[in-house]
Amino acid sequence: MPDTTPAKKALLEVDDVTIKFGGLTAMDSVSFQIREGEILGLIGPNGAGKTTCFNVMTGVYQATSGEVRLDGVSLAGRRRHKITQLGLARTFQNIRLFKSMTVLENVMVGADAHSKVGFFDALFRLPRHRRTEEEALAKAKGLLDLVGIKARHDELAANLSYGEQRRLEIARAMATGPKLLCLDEPAAGFNPAEKVQLMQLIKKVRDQGYTVLLIEHDMKLVMGVTDRIVVLEFGKKIAEGTPAEIRDNPAVIAAYLGVDEEDAS
């Protein structure tokens, strides 16, 4: 069961989570923890259950058994937007932007997550509306600057290049002010140079004080940026540890044996 007490406080605990789809067990008694301020890599071959893990955490699916806790608060049965407000934000493996909204508006939607502005504030342009709007705007612009697409802020999300869209997804998730930022294969479809750039961005994000959970199945890449790694295979956790430990873990080597890392996308 749970291993030795972690050095730092656990921000997120995945506690013995199992989820079944009909006959398929997509997650099988998976437990791990994410500590504040770290970058945790979640790796595993395609179909291992990584995205499913995100979906359970963010309330898209209900776990068949077990639960997920954020800061000690159980997320079970909570509505999705509430989970986001509690501090869990994510990106999507298959990009899901609001395509006919502008880049800036996409990020502002994220920034609105904690806004208390309601219908009447907006209708009568009460001070709260104005204040919140200015804050959201500043925040959104700052985030677009951070991910490097500020110049495109007035463009429609649909018109961005693929790489820019991935970056916008990250900015939008960060705008919700999360304690934990979950990135689902943010470098999928990138060439090696772009991947390296993205990993630098992720480090920069962590240095701003965010905790990051990163799904990525390119082993080499994950090794370079993560503090610790959890490995899934067929819905089971098969290993957990520092990049060095994972590299030498025989079970992990077996899982990846014969699987060309590049073709696994």
Partner: peptide
């Protein structure tokens, strides 16, 4: 535009 994504962005 995308109800699920909106929900997951806190809407």
């Amino acid at each position: 535009e995308d109800e699920d994504a909106a929900e997951l962005m806190g809407v």
